[in-house]
Simulated assay, not measured.
Amino acid sequence: MPAPFTDLGTVTAPSGLLVLGMAGWIDYWPETELPLGERARAAAAVGGGHLRDGDCEAVAVPAAADRPLRVRATTSPSPFDEEPAIATLEVELGLPWPADADPAAPVLLGDLPVDRCGMVIGDALGLEAWTGLDGDSTDGLADVTYWGRHADDAHARFGGERIFWHGVDGPHGWLDLPLPEATARAAELTAWRGGLSGTGVAVALDPHTDHYLAQRAGWDHPLRVGAIEVGGCPVLGIEWDQGDHSVRHHGERGWGQVYPVTLEADPSGGTVLRWTIPPYVEGEERN
């Protein structure tokens, strides 16, 4: 019996161009020869295709521009901790399956690795506004978190809320601080116990980039999926558990850890984009 699908949310593609890409590299497309939107338009003109320039990778396909596009997933147990992890990612494109194409024959567009920094699904033109790991805060705010051997002492001195993070109580800290205040607070904590010296507290200062906010939006989702708005369009970010990534996807393309992306017909005669990550087999050799 096929594994059941779980709804992850919806995205829109008002440009008619949908992208599934590596979140850690979306903001690097402007540095390549052609922008993401232009590459996506060329791929969509031939029914969809794989985009790659250096470490930047994505798949772009045509999609309905006038409606929300549902995103779903099946799961399989993670080889790291046996928690559910995404096995099949599927996006309804809002377009009919071509009348002259065999509905039983998926169309292979290429393959993608699981980016350690996560994946993103959204409108190709909207994603041209994506701010990545090293980008500026989109709203002038930032988060500060701290943890480590002397975290309790730091909390007694500096305060901060306990932050709920992926189903457990995470680090202490403060959310949504003005960036100057957050920077000063992080510096004060770092100076107090020597930062990452091993005997103090580790401190993270996270400006509100799109990449960070997408991850933060997934803190309370069992599959680490978060919805934010980028370039005026709702997009979904998907973060992978780092333990699961290390066991299952480590090495990414360089080690042959890539997974097929296809166009397929759904039972209603529509077209879906599907990314299939096969079950992990212990001891299986990597390419």
Rank of each mutant, 00 (worst) to 15 (best):
P4T: 10
T199F: 11
G48P: 15
L175K: 08
V168Y: 14
L125T: 13
A3K: 01
M22T: 05
T145V: 13
G256R: 11
A105V: 12
H211P: 02
G148Q: 02
D7K: 14
Y259W: 04
M1H: 06
L236A: 01
I163C: 00
E252F: 04
L125A: 06
I26D: 05
L95R: 01
E264I: 09
D111E: 12
G48Y: 10
W192H: 03
I121K: 00
S197L: 13
M119G: 05
A13W: 02
V203K: 06
P103V: 00
L69A: 06
W165Y: 09
A42C: 02
L141T: 01
T131Q: 00
V235A: 09
P35W: 04
R162L: 14
R116Q: 11
P35N: 00
D152I: 02
V272A: 07
D266G: 15
M22E: 13
P103K: 08
G24V: 07
L189G: 14
P106H: 14
A182M: 08
S246G: 15
A184N: 09
A65H: 03
G24S: 12
A65G: 08
H250P: 08
W219K: 15
A217D: 00
D115E: 15
H155W: 08
H166K: 04
H250V: 04
S137G: 05
P260H: 09
R286A: 11
E285G: 15
V281I: 13
G270M: 03
V144G: 08
A87K: 13
T209M: 02
P84F: 09
D220K: 07
P62H: 10
I228G: 10
G135D: 02
G251A: 04
G269I: 11
I238Q: 02
A217M: 01
R185E: 11
D210G: 09
L20R: 01
P180S: 04
P207Y: 00
E239N: 14
S15V: 04
N287L: 15
G94N: 08
R149S: 04
G110I: 12
G48H: 01
V201W: 04
E282D: 12
L69Y: 11
P106T: 05
W147L: 04
D102T: 03
L36S: 09
H221F: 12
V203L: 10
L18C: 00
G135M: 10
F158Q: 12
A13E: 15
V225G: 10
R185M: 03
R216A: 15
T190F: 03
A65C: 06
W130P: 03
A265H: 09
L273A: 06
Q215M: 02
A227P: 13
V230L: 14
A265D: 12
E82W: 01
P98E: 12
L109W: 01
A63N: 03
E285T: 08
I163G: 02
H208T: 00
D100F: 15
H172V: 03
H250G: 06
T190H: 14
A105H: 11
L108M: 13
A40E: 04
A3N: 00
R116A: 07
L51A: 06
I228L: 02
L141G: 06
V281K: 06
A64I: 13
T131F: 01
P62L: 14
L95V: 03
D55K: 05
A44Q: 07
E229F: 01
G167I: 09
Y28M: 15
